[in-house]
Design a binder for these strands. Structure first.
Lengths: 141, 141
DNA sequence: TGAGAATTTTGGGTTGTATCCAAAAATTAC
DNA sequence: GTAATTTTTGGATACAACCCAAAATTCTCA
């Protein structure tokens, strides 16, 4: 669903969303700050922005959780990473290298391209750094 | 031949270098400004930076040309674009789509990854938006 | 060849993302 | 319920990429 193209999120925000997705319950500011080695105030500000985008529910002083939209976005971000990393291994890159390389550029790859690649690879379930789950839009076309 | 990893140039600078590479002789400030729809003063400033990086020879009021280093860099940038676009067509993207998509993220793909992909594809000479020429480092390994 | 036209550069300012620090506010723990 | 901890606020910095207006340079051609 949606008109999102997949690159309205900066690389840093992609990383934050993926990090939050990997934790359970509300995630505290310091947990994220520690995870990325940045000042907590940086996190406070960025979380407010992501909440403004409707991706997070932000309870000041209590932490953030993904909204429904945020969860869907996170699923896409993870799938995008895994599809790209898997694709790179088709060209001889090691799992490590593929995963590292994909992290560098994945933020700039559109949802359309990912869906197409996913179809071309037969909707693979095994990625190189985790399983791949598929959303409906990917299965169309 | 070098230690460049392939992503020390911002996307915009990559575009400028490719544009200059596609022109013959010294390229005038306004030619570039018109090509990208930006103010000439923006070009003046950015050309000074690229000259500072040793990629351009910049003669104020007379235009810029690629230095030897700049030519090598441009060759890599073009090859990178074409390798990535070609790779994307392997996943069912049309030539147009592959070319457009590659443009978005190519700046963030390392030289190592490109060399590896190039080898895996058997050093192809035909890309989807132009021929591919190979440098030595790609042929090693 | 020299003055006006066109081009280019300089200097100063803006925007957006991502960051930091110090001080204030809120929460938590004992 | 006060002290310690965490978080937020407010103010700054850095950087890339951009714009505008004014100054400098180069070009044109009568």
């Amino acid at each position: 669903m949606g008109t999102d193209t997949g690159f309205e999120l900066s690389p840093r925000k992609v990383d934050y969303i993926k990090f939050i997705n990997g934790k359970s319950g509300p995630v505290k500011t310091n947990t994220i700050a520690d995870g990325f080695g940045v000042d907590p105030s940086t996190i406070t500000k960025t979380m407010a922005e992501l909440a403004g985008d409707g991706l997070l529910v932000y309870a000041p002083y209590h932490g953030v959780s993904l909204s429904e939209k945020g969860k869907i976005t996170a699923q896409f971000l993870i799938k995008r990473h895994r599809i790209l990393a898997l694709a790179l291994t088709h060209f001889g890159l090691s799992h490590e290298q593929a995963c590292r390389e994909a992290s560098r550029f994945e933020s700039y790859v559109s949802k359309d391209a990912i869906d197409q690649m996913c179809r071309a690879m037969g909707h693979p379930n095994k990625g190189v750094c985790g399983d791949i789950t598929h959303d409906d839009s990917c299965l169309e076309g």
